[in-house]
Simulated assay, not measured.
Amino acid sequence: MTRVWDVPVHDSTRVRDVRVAAEHAAEHAGLDQDRTVAAALVATELATNLLKHGGGGQILIDTVDADLWLPGAGRGAAVQIAAIDHGPGISDLPAALRDGYSTTSSLGAGLGTCRRIADDFDVHSAPGQGTVALARVYAVRTRRPGRGATGAPVPVRAGGINIPLAAAAYSGDAWACVRSGDHVTLLLADGLGHGPAAAKASTAAVRQLRHSAHLPPPELLGQLHTALCDTRGAAVAVARLDLADGHLDFAGIGNIGARLRSGDTWRPLLSRPGIVGAHRPARLPHTRTPWNDDSLLVLHSDGLPSRWTPPPVALLASLDPAVAAAVIVRDSSSAARPVRDDTTVAVLTPTPQDHQT
């Protein structure tokens, strides 16, 4: 089931909690001692930076599969650590990413250390809006970011943020991205309700995807319906990208939100009413649309407001997809709107050219 460590960081006592959570996540992901130490150090630095420069915020620690960046076999699982705040932002981000930089009396290890130790690292900061910093530490040290096991450029990348309701141990949402030949399939499942029973349903959907990623979305949803029959069911959306022909097929059952951006235009991709594993529609047409070099797909569960406003296109395309997902969640949240469910956002985007070389 999807285990997420959601740690609010508003005083120094929580830094230890973040480190311990990172160690538990590393054990969950099967990291060895050296990789566990790296994950714990990165988590500690991000939490400390959150207090010193963001005025406090939230640390999310999750375990993700190597399919996240679609590199083929060899990297194993990873611990993903995201630090999110609504603080003043970082005025000089390039300087902050250098080892030894500090605007306080600290040693200045922070973000520079995280970038050096982590296998994947990205940060976005905007004055007056806050900062999102994200790192991944894999079971196997990454040799060349953005490239597959054969050394060929990875044409697309995917990432996501999963936030359980009320900082619960398990999220009822789950997402995954799997490559099968020239096809890349992004799935987001929202188990009915929340808690362990919902997590069981969404986890079953991800497990079935790994066996059936070669299928078109309508057929895959049929397989998922059978796989989820002994669970409480889930809302599921499936998007399958054909890398050879350059088109995207989409189908969904339930209330998973989906938006596709091409150029300067966003368009919704519509799902059918129903519950996978319980109430499947008699007909399940799917949407086929071109996928271009400037396309970007966002899937989200109903924990996110349905009328969320997309950040600037150029910003989303330039960020690690998980950072883009975190920015969407952060900028859509409001103290006036209580969250009543798990919240997950998954993003699929072409890999920028500077990440393919």
Rank of each mutant, 00 (worst) to 15 (best):
Q129H: 09
G130L: 05
G130K: 03
A133W: 15
A133E: 15
A133N: 13
L134V: 11
L134I: 08
A135V: 08
R136Y: 11
R136A: 10
V137K: 09
Y138P: 02
V140M: 04
V140G: 03
V140L: 03
T142E: 15
R144F: 12
P145A: 05
P145V: 07
G148S: 13
A149K: 06
T150V: 10
G151M: 03
A152E: 04
P153V: 00
P153L: 03
V154M: 11
P155M: 00
R157Y: 07
R157W: 10
R157D: 13
G159N: 09
G159V: 07
G159Q: 08
I161K: 08
I161F: 05
I163M: 12
A166S: 14
A167C: 11
A167Q: 14
A168D: 11
A169Y: 03
A169F: 03
Y170V: 14
Y170G: 08
Y170Q: 13
Y170H: 14
Y170M: 11
S171H: 06
D173R: 05
A174I: 00
A174N: 04
A174Y: 03
A176V: 07
C177V: 12
V178N: 05
R179P: 01
R179T: 00
G181C: 07
G181N: 08
G181E: 11
H183P: 00
V184P: 10
T185G: 01
L186C: 03
L186W: 02
L187I: 10
L187M: 14
L188N: 01
A189G: 12
A189Y: 11
L192G: 01
H194D: 03
H194R: 03
H194C: 00
G195L: 00
G195I: 00
P196D: 06
A197T: 03
A197Y: 05
K200A: 15
A201G: 02
S202N: 02
T203K: 05
A205R: 05
V206D: 08
V206C: 14
L209S: 05
R210F: 02
R210L: 04
H211V: 06
H211N: 08
A213F: 00
H214L: 09
H214E: 14
P216V: 01
P216D: 09
P216Q: 08
P216H: 04
P217H: 10
P218M: 10
P218R: 13
P218Q: 13
P218F: 09
L221G: 15
L221D: 14
L221P: 13
G222K: 10
Q223A: 14
L224R: 02
H225D: 13
T226H: 13
A227V: 11
L228N: 12
T231E: 00
G233L: 04
A234V: 07
A235W: 04
V236E: 10
V236S: 07
V238T: 14
V238Q: 11
V238E: 12
A239E: 06
A239P: 04
D242R: 00
L243F: 02
L243M: 01
D245S: 14
